[in-house]
Amino acid sequence: MEKKYFFTITMILSLFCACSDSERCINEGSEEFLSVAQVGFALKSSDAASKSFFEEGDQIGLYIYDSQGSGYRGMTYKNNSWALHAPVSVSEGYTDIYAAYPYNSQNDVATSFEIEHTSQTDYLYSDRYSVNSTNPVLSLTMKHALALIEFEFQWTDVSQAANLELIAIQGQGLYSKAKIDLITGKMEHLKGWNDPAVIYGWQLGSDHLNDGSKVSLMVVPCDEIENDGDIMIDFYTDNMKAHWPVPAGTRWESGKRYTYKVLIQERLLEIMDVRIEDWIDAGTDRISLPWYE
């Protein structure tokens, strides 16, 4: 059974007494406030690129909407618990909440958040969920905003196995920044941002590419590309440089993992197979890579 690459965060929201006049709260007339008492993963990712647990100091942003307006709150993971940066109150009326990781203290847009792939941050976000004073338990399913591109290497002669210098994905068909509207779920690419997504050998536990080695990196999702080579994938090892033009019609979606089986034999590198899973294109592609010294 293939693993599904998503996880669920369960947030138990506790009630407290009145907010002080100096605190800016949603529903200021209410005297009940929420805090995050517990966060737990229902499923952890096994690949090295994805985030599979929260660490001390990690922060999540909460986008909050009710009849009085909207707000943005951060919470930080400290001493095995979550602490809101400022109180949030709820009343009998419903309050809608979206979540996004990581928290951005500079965020001033109440309906969207920005993603990028140059830092290789695993951006996460949720759909809308509603709470009120009588229903304070919120279960959030966080989704991956980026697409995960994985390469599985095979060698016809294992004695030729090499050390990885880098893998880069770049081209005019690949944007490096985008905005996601949390209310509609739509993504908008930011024009003029086409920086490559790069993984270096030194960033891996081992840069040696054995038979069966896997290397993955994340990219901003792309629409169906029009021409072969609008996106290029560059493979650099200590004894090889090869470049593969991604074929026309390829589309990389949020929250999906695309596994490319890469066969290396003598002076030829080939893409043998593509698998698409949640983070399936049935069939096999065998495409020879041009060789460059």
Rank of each mutant, 00 (worst) to 15 (best):
M1I: 12
M1W: 14
E2T: 14
K4Q: 09
T8F: 09
M11R: 09
I12T: 15
F16D: 14
S20C: 13
S20F: 11
S22A: 15
R24S: 05
E28T: 04
S30Y: 00
E32I: 14
E32P: 12
L34A: 00
L34G: 02
L34K: 06
S35M: 13
S35P: 09
V36D: 07
A37G: 08
Q38A: 13
Q38Y: 15
G40V: 15
K51I: 05
K51H: 05
S52K: 08
S52Q: 01
F54C: 02
E55G: 01
E56F: 02
D58R: 04
I60H: 08
Q68S: 09
G69L: 08
K78S: 13
N79A: 14
N80A: 11
L84N: 06
S89C: 12
S91T: 09
T95Y: 04
P102W: 01
N104A: 08
S105T: 08
Q106D: 10
Q106H: 05
N107E: 06
V109F: 08
A110V: 12
T111I: 06
I115R: 01
I115S: 07
I115L: 10
I115Q: 02
E116T: 00
H117E: 02
Q120E: 14
D122W: 10
D122T: 10
S126T: 07
D127T: 10
S130T: 13
N135G: 10
P136A: 02
V137Y: 11
L138S: 03
L148R: 02
L148D: 02
I149T: 06
E150Y: 03
Q154E: 06
Q154K: 01
V158K: 15
Q160V: 10
N163F: 15
E165D: 13
I167D: 00
Q170E: 14
Q170A: 12
G173H: 06
K177E: 00
K177F: 03
I183Y: 07
T184Y: 14
T184F: 15
K186V: 12
K186C: 08
E188D: 05
E188P: 01
E188N: 09
H189W: 13
K191V: 09
N194A: 08
W202R: 04
Q203D: 13
S206P: 12
N210A: 12
D211Q: 11
G212Y: 08
G212A: 15
S213F: 10
V219Y: 00
P221N: 09
P221Y: 03
C222H: 09
D223F: 05
E224M: 10
I225Q: 00
D228N: 12
D228C: 13
D230Y: 01
T237L: 01
N239Q: 15
M240W: 03
H243S: 14
W244Q: 01
W244K: 04
P247M: 02
A248F: 10
R251C: 10
W252P: 01
E253Y: 10
E253V: 11
S254F: 07
K256A: 05
R257Y: 07
T259P: 07
Y260I: 05
L263C: 07
L263R: 13
L263A: 07
E266L: 05
E266Y: 09
L269R: 06
I271H: 03
D273V: 02
V274T: 03
W279H: 05
D281N: 12
D281R: 04
G283L: 02
G283Y: 00
I287C: 06
L289F: 04
W291V: 11
E293P: 13
